[in-house]
């Protein structure tokens, strides 16, 4: 059972990490985050279901289009819910993205349907036995893909022009402007990438759970907790915190029962932030007087 708990914890944890990376990406580039990130998780899964199952298109195509849809959502969120407020130096982007999430969740509810549906996957039909525990192959695939994507993002950031542009804006937006980089467009790209990551997570976890209009909400909140816990400015910290969070959640559920999971995990978060106010791997901003 411990194996199952660990695998399950690592799997969910890597997904939290992936969604939290989305918070990280927009935060470092623009100082803002999309609080409707959970809705992007939902959208990824719902689009995947609608295209791949309802319309019966080939799954790879459905997945690609679903991810494209998520990226588009990111662009729309940035343009309508973030930029108008940031340009007026208002913090209301925070509430605007929350409201945007409510609108999107309900829009999905009325188009996709009210019932949870199941996204079939060959990797989640027949369990295999590993160390005395039955697991779906997908449960093993998820942490591998999750960490793989996180690693790929790192590689993209380090190796491609787009990645370097994002990093440049994150490190020094003014200097980036002087390089001829359009910071606005870069921020929009970061939002697209952020929603895309959430979409990947949504598509990966959908076959294990179910596809519904509200599947992403709790994931979004937990991922935000993960992003903060890891130190939202540190990509490594965020992924690490995701794994820790997933494992802690699974272990508390297995030992104390799921009724105590949220109390214990959220108490630990408050405690951790009291001890490390900038998150596990976050760096304190220099207090310049």
């Amino acid at each position: 059972m411990l194996t199952g708990t660990l695998v399950s914890g690592l799997g969910l944890g890597s997904m939290y990490g992936l969604i939290a990376l989305g918070f990280h990406v927009t935060y470092v580039v623009s100082g803002t985050v999309n609080f409707a990130q959970g809705s992007a998780v939902t959208l990824g899964a719902v689009l995947g279901y609608a295209l791949g199952v309802t319309l019966g298109w080939p799954m790879p195509l459905a997945v690609l289009l679903a991810l494209a849809g998520c990226a588009l959502l990111g662009l729309v969120v940035e343009r309508l819910l973030v930029r108008p407020f940031v340009e007026r130096a208002s913090d209301s982007w925070l509430l605007a993205t929350v409201a945007g999430g409510i609108v999107l969740d309900n829009a999905i509810l009325f188009t996709f349907g009210k019932e949870p549906r199941s996204l079939p996957s060959v990797l989640a039909t027949r369990p295999v036995e590993i160390l005395g525990t039955g697991l779906y192959p997908l449960q093993l695939v998820i942490p591998v893909v999750g960490l793989g994507v996180a690693f790929a993002i790192r590689t993209v950031f380090r190796r491609t022009d787009l990645g370097r542009v994002l990093l440049a804006v994150a490190q020094n937006a003014d200097a980036a402007r002087l390089m001829g980089i359009d910071v606005r467009r870069t921020v929009a790209c970061a939002y697209a990438l952020s929603a895309l990551l959430a979409g990947v997570a949504g598509l990966l976890i959908a076959p294990l759970f179910s596809v519904s209009a509200e599947m992403g909400t709790l994931f979004g909140i937990k991922a935000f907790a993960v992003a903060i816990l890891g130190g939202i400015g540190s990509a490594t910290g965020v992924v690490l915190a995701g794994l820790l969070y997933g494992l802690a959640e699974a272990l508390v559920t297995a030992t104390l029962g799921s009724t105590y999971t949220q109390i214990v995990v959220f108490s630990v978060i408050i405690l951790a932030l009291a001890l490390r106010p900038d998150g596990l791997l976050g760096r304190a901003a220099v207090n310049k007087v």
């Binding site: 935060y27 816990l229 939202i232 108490s267 408050i270 932030l273």
Partner: peptide, 13 residues
């Protein structure tokens, strides 16, 4: 955002 998270966690607890 760290303060926001502490208060969110408080609400959930």
């Amino acid at each position: 955002p760290y303060l926001a998270m502490v208060t969110i966690a408080f609400g959930f607890i």
